[in-house]
Design a protein around this nucleic acid. Structure first.
Lengths: 145, 145
DNA sequence: CTTGAAAGTGACCTTGT
DNA sequence: ACAAGGTCACTTTCAAG
């Protein structure tokens, strides 16, 4: 089962801070052996609590300076999977959130500049059966961790 | 901005897929020695292209089943740093995006259930000088990678 | 590239309930 | 018996010369 105790939560916190932390390091912090820590992490991967590890990148330094959210409305005939697929097809789209309420989706995009943003929005509007968009330009961001 | 060649981009892609991949594994894929790969990764950390590594967690499995975005308007007297600070203070807030346009901020929250969501929205409304909110409930999500 | 040190990995044993 | 941790031996990876 996915019953997690305090130690499991500590391990998740430690791995959230640094996903490449060694088992020995975590073991010293939580007061277990390295093997025990490895078994717990393996178990959390097995049970799906941990879905993976990834690198965090500063996209501005890669020349993708502009971030935006686009609220989208689709025609009534569009299915959820169509909506997600048509937006996710664009390489600049980082995430697609389908929503309850009058909006259908919130799409997070990352682009080089404003001309590029315009182009992506245009592509999204043309793909699928979009009936309306409203774009929110991100000026600053704060994220936990 | 930073000078990155194709190999650097390959390394970023590999680390994005699996942040705990070993240097030897990446070296075999891109056709370099492990030492050369380590030097490139170290350089990208130094230059700030790579800001860190982290674990990816399925929050639903941890009992945080509800995700939402809250669009927020603040009083004209509120400064950007006040806005971010007052929202980021709530532990349920995952990210705060400050925006251009009539909206001031988009806040991403993760909560246990709808009652919990209500409580967090209330807390955000009371903290700082919020003049209006509109909450978008997330039904489904797709993210790149 | 080579090499000693560190980390990861799996088998086996011990202990608690 | 079972589930969780410890110990140890072996392999892989790391990182400096």
């Amino acid at each position: 089962m996915q019953e997690l105790d305090d130690i499991d939560h500590s391990l998740l916190r430690l791995l959230h801070e640094d996903g490449r932390r060694t088992f020995a390091d975590m073991a010293a912090t939580v007061g277990l052996s390295t093997a025990a820590v490895k078994r717990r992490v393996d178990r959390m991967r097995e049970s799906g609590v941990i879905t993976g590890f990834t690198v965090q990148v500063d996209h501005k330094k890669l020349g993708w300076a502009v971030e935006a959210f686009s609220e989208i409305r689709y025609a009534g005939t569009a299915s959820i999977s169509d909506i997600v697929e048509s937006a996710a097809r664009q390489p600049e789209v980082q995430a697609v959130y389908t929503l309850a309420g009058d909006l259908d989706a919130l799409v997070q995009v990352r682009v080089r500049d404003l001309a590029h943003l315009q182009e992506v929005i245009d592509r999204i509007r043309r793909s699928g059966t979009v009936t309306g968009t409203r774009t929110l330009m991100v000026l600053g961001r704060w994220t936990r961790g």
